[in-house]
Design a protein around this nucleic acid. Structure first.
Lengths: 199, 199, 199, 199
DNA sequence: CGATAAGCGAGACGGTACGTCTGGTCTTATC
DNA sequence: GATAAGACCAGACGTACCGTCTCGCTTATCG
């Protein structure tokens, strides 16, 4: 999230906003997360470093902004059944995670732990919104009578998010098989929830 | 894995091997992954930087060696049922992941993507041995007749590893609840496998 | 001679230019040539190492610049006689050589041989200007009729420079006696030239 | 001057003594003074570093020993006249200085200032013996009646040594012209001494 | 003869400096 | 006041070298 601009003086050139984001993505693709430097972004984009740091506090924020596309906040529309809702949810999660190469994901994750502020922002935006979606889906199932009581959202979240995370981040799984895998994950979670109430 | 030593000349001092590993862990705990420097390790351990770089090509290799404890290779003993085997397996995986703080895990993961050699080593040691254990457990279940056919090991691996990974790495879950959570993950996977053959 | 700066962007801070030179001289005086480190210069001057290496390619260039004060170019004014001219010239040379402690002189000399670029610069600035002065003095003497033909400049240069060099660099002679010694050198050379034409 | 050996235990291998000296000279010629490393000498000579440091306290002592051929101590034989004695003396000095490349001379000189012990040894051996020779020559001239009183030996030493030093060290003079130049230096000094009593 | 002492090649060790690089800030002149 | 260029501080990185030490071995003299 770029720093705000008080609306006084020369307005920011929005071409630059775009150039930063695009160049960052380019260079991430070319040189990988570890090989990305702010100087390189500035040079390639034909802008000054100050223009970057006026918008983002740190390099990590810049990458975060360039990578983590401002993500969906709404829980998926009611699909009628818990099974359908979980599948939709899992697909959204998978789409998020597949949006960036694995090295970027890993790098970002590391930076989130290195920089407390970034961690907080990540938790508040990304995590919180996902968690809300999970909660909403579960609550709908309770309302429908599919579940007796609402299971712990964190647990379900981990059951959905985790396998996909592992697939792209650790196991370097084929992303072509992702739709299929997504279905497996969703159904496994659904099966578990429907069979036995998970704490 | 440290660089080798041709058996000629003065042998490496194994006290130093140990000191590097211990000091690295100490400093990781004190200052976090991002705050670790090679100079600090050398200074604290009372050794020269050369002694470190004689053993490890890069800082990352050092951290890797200090962190990824040369890990279990054996699949869990036969527990009699798929359910029991999966629980044991999941517990082993969880123990591995809980061995290091989250920031170290994240940092290591990022470095694995940054350094190809490290990535290969990680895949060959850590991943391969885990995968073999998963395969063994599944094969036992087929032999027992619990499963009709052996499911894809990668998928099951992701279903087991993923939620735990997400729990410690993303959701910053309470590690005290890990035993309980581990059980949930194992049972969810068991349920899925026993209900429907996963691809 | 510092690296140039293309007039675009933030200009070099000339305070730093000065600080580097002064601090280098200070530390040379305090710790001697062999004890001088770039880190110490940076630390004492309160600047970053990069600011030094932006100006000088190597430590040696820095010392060179800090020590070999951009020196006089003009031959001494016409003193009326060869004897007088030689004395003036010798005094200038002696003043140059006494400007730095013996260890710095020796260190610099060694570095000049170690680094070809430095050697060239030394020859072109220091040596060439001194040689021109010697030539000019000798030519004046020929014009005056004191000498029948112009002697080889290199030889005369060696006769003037050498003894002083030996005095400060090898024999560790008392610098208090330098004025007297300078006179001796000048007169010895004058006597030789006036008696017999030196090749 | 190598460290002594108490005659007990295995005796030193004199092949190694020679190998060190020869290899040092070789490498000095190939890579220059600044490029010489002890490891390289040991490797090239096929010996261990310890064998070197058992003989010489420091790298500089090794180079010193390999370079400064154990030099003449005797003043030149009586040539009958001051002029002839000075020429002989100058030739000896020139021979000494021409024995090593200029960069080695410069490097050695710098090291002499860096290492007090080496400086003392240099002064006591090289310098002192030269000075004695100068004194002896001057005294002979007084005895012969060529000179009224014995001039200051240091001064004469500087007048003889200096120009040659400058020739090889600073002016990078052609060493082929050395014999001629030597004569010039000797005669200039003789002329000065015979004309006027130098301090 | 065996014990003792030292030499030897190889190379690890602690220490220290080098020169490079990057991140994030600041300073010009220009727009 | 935003911008491009680039200087600035801080400090980590990985390399190189020095002089010392340790290993397992060899080679001499002494008892």
């Amino acid at each position: 999230m770029p720093k705000p601009n008080r609306g006084v003086g020369r307005p920011r050139n929005s071409d630059i906003d775009l150039a930063i984001v695009c160049t960052t993505r380019e260079l991430l693709a070319e040189r990988g997360y570890a090989g990305l430097t702010v100087d390189a972004v500035a040079a390639r984009a034909g802008i000054g470093k100050a223009a970057i740091y006026r918008r983002y506090k740190t390099k990590q924020e810049m990458i975060f902004a360039a990578t983590v596309h401002d993500l969906w906040e709404q829980p998926p529309p009611d699909g009628g059944t818990l099974r359908a809702d979980l599948l939709a949810l899992t697909r959204t999660i998978a789409a998020q995670l597949c949006g960036a190469p694995a090295d970027v994901l890993a790098g970002l994750l590391a930076d989130i732990y290195a920089d407390k502020a970034l961690g907080t922002r990540f938790a508040e935006t990304f995590l919180e919104s996902e968690r809300k979606a999970v909660t909403a889906v579960l609550e709908r199932a309770v309302t429908r009578g599919e579940l007796a009581s609402r299971p712990e959202a964190s647990t379900v979240h981990a059951l959905l998010l985790g396998p996909i995370l592992a697939w792209v981040l650790i196991l370097d799984g084929d992303r072509g098989e992702m739709p299929e895998f997504t279905r497996t994950v969703a159904e496994a979670t659904a099966a578990t929830l429907l069979l036995r109430p998970t704490s």
